[in-house]
Design a protein around this nucleic acid. Structure first.
Lengths: 190, 190
DNA sequence: TCGATCATGTAACCGGTTACATGATTGT
DNA sequence: ACAATCATGTAACCGGTTACATGATCGA
């Protein structure tokens, strides 16, 4: 699970671009970071409390006491330092549990067709997201020299594109190998 | 975190190939599944208890009562059915939290060189594993038509190779873009 | 003899999800 | 009127890691 709580850095990173409410933080994560990160309200609100106690953010409300209070959080200088010190540390390796590989590894006891169907699902779910990533790419590409943020966003988009294409290519190879095996089986039975 | 406990299926999948002790299960996971799965003793032993209670495995000991008891677990017919029913279900999508992308996304506030160093680390750690995967591939390739298990193992190896190569390619692109940006910056300063 | 590996397990803790609770505001 | 969205939070629960505890066996 990776010892350290990374949620604090996601929040600090977003707040570093400007003050936000908890709700807005969630929206930004869902819209912008969804290809490589996610989190839930049940994590965001408690973490904001932790951040405030540590004085990495400050809290303010333009309608305190009223119903539907809107609490805006702002990063502090200490918070910015905390963010920077994390940014320059080596990253944890992505450790990923691929359920589909686990199923394939043990998959010889079910029908070949069932395994192929699983891979087809996998392939399609990534393939359909590639055009969106390419759209982002075409929007960010011309801006990359003007603003370092755009360049950094572009790098994450290129990552997504590269990996999703690799998923699709592997799926095609795997389906071909399984189909070939299935054909050989049929011949043997005949 | 993905609702259902997948550890039970990893264990059932391994036991389906033959009886094992908890310790041996851990070793097999570390040796064979490490590219796409891992787990700890603190998860394996309690899960074996759950599996036994559900009668998906049976427990036996050739040296009961002695010190250093060796407890061997064997899958039952119900266990095998449970495994099969999971194998044919659609897989959860791999949801992956890439700390390195998070850092890049927020990376414009630190030195370009720091971000490049992070990517270089990332690249190297995967690059060095590719030869091992290619060795596995060359061992499994000639066996794939003889035994369906070997074909299935090969598919998981091909996955690893494809994704690791994609990581390396992206790293090179990203480093090039960041270096280019850095050069332009220097010119502007002059 | 001494270190590596075999072998089983527990307890404390943490990160994270889901469901629940509550209600206001905005646009159609 | 009504649905969607805005808005904040809590509690129960679960999966998983780490550290701890204990000791046997085997090979150099």
């Amino acid at each position: 699970m990776g010892r350290e709580n990374k949620t604090i850095y996601v929040i600090l990173g977003l707040l570093n671009q400007g003050p936000l409410t908890g709700y807005e933080i969630k929206k930004r994560i869902d819209n912008e970071l969804k290809y490589f990160w996610d989190t839930s309200f049940g994590q965001i609100y408690p973490t904001l409390g932790v951040l405030e106690e540590a004085q990495w953010v400050t809290k303010s409300s333009d309608n305190k006491g009223q119903k539907l209070e809107r609490i805006t959080y702002t990063i502090t200088e200490e918070g910015r330092e905390k963010l920077k010190s994390w940014l320059i540390m080596p990253s944890d390796m992505p450790f990923i549990k691929y359920e589909i590989l686990l199923k394939l590894y043990f998959g010889s006891i079910i029908e070949v067709q069932e395994n192929i169907a699983n891979i087809v699902d996998f392939k399609e779910s990534f393939e359909e997201q590639i055009p969106t990533l390419e759209l982002f790419e075409s929007e960010l590409e011309p801006l990359k020299d003007q603003n370092p943020d755009h360049l950094h966003y572009l790098l994450t988009v290129l990552f997504g594109k590269k990996i999703y294409k690799a998923y699709v290519e592997w799926s095609e190879e795997a389906i071909a190998l399984l189909s070939e095996y299935q054909q050989n089986q049929k011949k043997t039975v005949k």
